[in-house]
C-alpha cells in the first residue's frame, strides 16, 4: 500500500489496540477510585488529563474506556459480518425464492427505525434475561464464563449493534456473489466437479470479502459512535464503568468549568473513527490495484 495516510491510520489502530489491552498495567490510577478532594482538577503532571467530578483520573478512565469502545466496535462488526455474509451468500448463490424471501427480510428490517428498536431492547434490560441463561443446565457454565469476561450489558449492546448492521453486509455480499457466480473460474470449478458448497466457500466467499472488509472498517467507526450515543443517553455502558460515551455524558454538565472532561473522550472518538475510515479507504485502494 502506497497510501501513507492509510498506514498512519492502521498504526493508530494498532496503537489503540495495544493501549486497550495493556490498560490495567499502564493506567496510572484506578479508574473507579474516587477522591472527592481532588475533584475537577485541570490537566497537570499528576493527572495528565485532569480529574472528573468524583476525583477520578480522566486518563485512566479513558484507557479503560478504550477497551470497551474497541471491543464493542470490533465485536459488533464481527457479528454483523458473520451474519450478513452467511445470509447474503445464501441469497446470492441460490437465487430464486430463497433469495426473494431473504431479501424481503432484509428490506423489512431496513425499514424499521432500528435506533428505536435498539433503545426499546436495551430499555427492557435483556441483560437480566441473558443472566437467566446462566441457570440453564447445559450452556449455563459457559454462559457464566462468558459473562465474567464481558459484562452482559455490553454483550447485549454488541449483539444489538451487530443486528442493526448485518443487512448492509448481506446486500453487499449478495451482490458480489451474484456477479462472481457468472465468472468463468466458477464455471471451471463446476466443470471440474466441485460441489456447490466447495464453490461457495472456497471460491465465492473469499472473493466477495473485499468490499465487505472495507465496509467493516467503516462499520467499526459507526459502531463506536453508536455506542457513544447510547452511553451518552444513559442507555449503553452504565457508570461507574467508563466508556467514551458515558464520559462525554458525565462531562457535559461541567462543560463550562472542566473542558478536559469532554475534550478527551470526544477527541478519542474522533480520532478512532477517523482512523478506521481512513484505513478502510486504504484497504479499498489496495484491493483495487
Amino acid at each position: 500500500m502506497k497510501n501513507r495516510v492509510a498506514w498512519v491510520a492502521l498504526g493508530t489502530i494498532a496503537m489503540l489496540a495495544i493501549v486497550a489491552s495493556l490498560a490495567p498495567w499502564i493506567a496510572p490510577y484506578d479508574p473507579l477510585e474516587t477522591r472527592i478532594v481532588d475533584a475537577l482538577l485541570p490537566p497537570s503532571a499528576a493527572h495528565w488529563l485532569g480529574t472528573d467530578q468524583l476525583g477520578r483520573d480522566v486518563l485512566s478512565r479513558l484507557l479503560y474506556g478504550t477497551r470497551i469502545s474497541l471491543t464493542i466496535g470490533l465485536l459488533s462488526v464481527s457479528v454483523a459480518v458473520v451474519l450478513g455474509t452467511f445470509i447474503g451468500a445464501i441469497a446470492g448463490f441460490f437465487g430464486g425464492w430463497v433469495d426473494s424471501v431473504l431479501m424481503r427480510l432484509v428490506d423489512t428490517l431496513l425499514s424499521v427505525p432500528l435506533m428505536f428498536l435498539l433503545l426499546a431492547i436495551v430499555a427492557m434490560d435483556p441483560a437480566q434475561q441473558l443472566l437467566a441463561l446462566a441457570g440453564w443446565p447445559v450452556i449455563g457454565p459457559s454462559v457464566k464464563l462468558l459473562f465474567r469476561w464481558i459484562d452482559p450489558r455490553i454483550m447485549v449492546l454488541m449483539i444489538a449493534i451487530g443486528a442493526m448492521s448485518w443487512m448492509g453486509v448481506a446486500r453487499l455480499v449478495r451482490a458480489e456473489i451474484m456477479t462472481l457466480k457468472e465468472r468463468e473460474f466458477v464455471l471451471a470449478a463446476r466443470v471440474a466437479g466441485a460441489s456447490p458448497w466447495r464453490i461457495l466457500t472456497r471460491h465465492l466467499i473469499p472473493n466477495a470479502m473485499a468490499p465487505v472488509l472495507v465496509s467493516a472498517t467503516l462499520g467499526v467507526g459507526g459502531a463506536i459512535l453508536t455506542e457513544s450515543v447510547l452511553s451518552y443517553l444513559g442507555l449503553g455502558v452504565m457508570p461507574p464503568t467508563p466508556s467514551w460515551g458515558n464520559m462525554l455524558n458525565e462531562g457535559r454538565v461541567a462543560l463550562g468549568v472542566a473542558w478536559w472532561l469532554t475534550m478527551s473522550p470526544g477527541l478519542c472518538i474522533l480520532l478512532t473513527v477517523l482512523a478506521f475510515n481512513l484505513a478502510g479507504e486504504g484497504i479499498r485502494e489496495w484491493i483495487d490495484r
Binding site: E184, F185, L187, A188, A189, V191, A192, G193, N207
Partner: peptide, 16 residues
C-alpha cells in the same frame, strides 16, 4: 467430471 475437462476463452477470468 474427471473424463471431460474444459478450457475457457478469457484466461483472466477463468482463474480464481
Amino acid at each position: 467430471h474427471r473424463h471431460v475437462a474444459m478450457i475457457f476463452q478469457d484466461p483472466t477470468n477463468s482463474l480464481d
